[in-house]
Design a protein around this nucleic acid. Sequence first.
DNA 1: CTTGACCTTCCCATCATGGGAACCTTTATC
DNA 2: GATAAAGGTTCCCATGATGGGAAGGTCAAG
Lengths: 164, 164
Amino acid sequence: MKIGEAARRSGVSAKMIRYYESIGLLAQAARAGNSYRDFDIRDVHDLTFIRRSRDLGFSVDEIRQLLALWRDRSRPSREVKEIAQRHVAEMEARIAHMQEIVGTLRHLADCCAGDARPDCPILGELGGEGEDANGVIADFHVIVGEEGEPSGAARRRLAAFTDD
Amino acid sequence: MKIGEAARRSGVSAKMIRYYESIGLLAQAARAGNSYRDFDIRDVHDLTFIRRSRDLGFSVDEIRQLLALWRDRSRPSREVKEIAQRHVAEMEARIAHMQEIVGTLRHLADCCAGDARPDCPILGELGGEGEDANGVIADFHVIVGEEGEPSGAARRRLAAFTDD
DNA sequence: CTTGACCTTCCCATCATGGGAACCTTTATC
DNA sequence: GATAAAGGTTCCCATGATGGGAAGGTCAAG
């Protein structure tokens, strides 16, 4: 079958199929009638495996390991479980971090009248007004870690899981 | 002061200061003694505002809005509150999605012996074995949304909040 | 005058994904 | 058979926020 059908069956876009092939995650597809990749049902299985792993948030690198284990019929299930658990721990750390931020922001928003007046504790906080009184700011400093290193850490962005 | 000191004081790397300037988030810095940007205390305040906003997970675009509101002393606090609440809602959606995934993975991992034997429900699930029995798989399909559109959705990656 | 610290600009890489151009092949319709 | 539509191929570019590093300019202390 051609790439379009493989894409439809696996739920992986043609673009990504080519990409996975290019980075060696998927075996080079056979070629038919010059140019035109030619996929068989096993390719579709691999692609489906890949898509499901992606859906569970595994990175390409983790999927590479999972695929290798999947193909190795004598693998110890321990190895698979470890990958999954490491991934779970990572996600839980992210979740915890995001929840702290949400907590701070909700607190600030709750303290904000949200009307036509200009006073706003959210902007006050961000602008650093009253740099040494008041519990909100103390909380804030704890939450975003502003005691030790002034520039080191915790400053990366959130990305996705949100464009469906 | 030069860029290094502004970076130290604000907690924003010199690299990012130049970047923020280049995308117009921060005003063009004054230049002294040929080349060499020359920052004053207000620049440091702006940078600190930016850093704190980043720490709370706001995107550059949101920060742009927040900065404009911060500078506008007659802004209605409603506008700020709306931005914050929209952001909170977004983060909560992401958190919920990640929690679903963590739940699925934990369930699968719990069902996995994690020893030297090769049987592994995690790989079984990813590989799609037993495509139509068994509750685990049913759960899985609900969670990652595999009933309707075969390729449309929910397939983006998680990114960060995790390198501190 | 040299050394080292600091600045400048410019380019490249990340990660997974999509967009689009330029061009070729297959299939369906007249 | 000619033509059009659909779908394939490769290649380059963009995303968002950030860091790395090269090549070169500037400044202060020794």
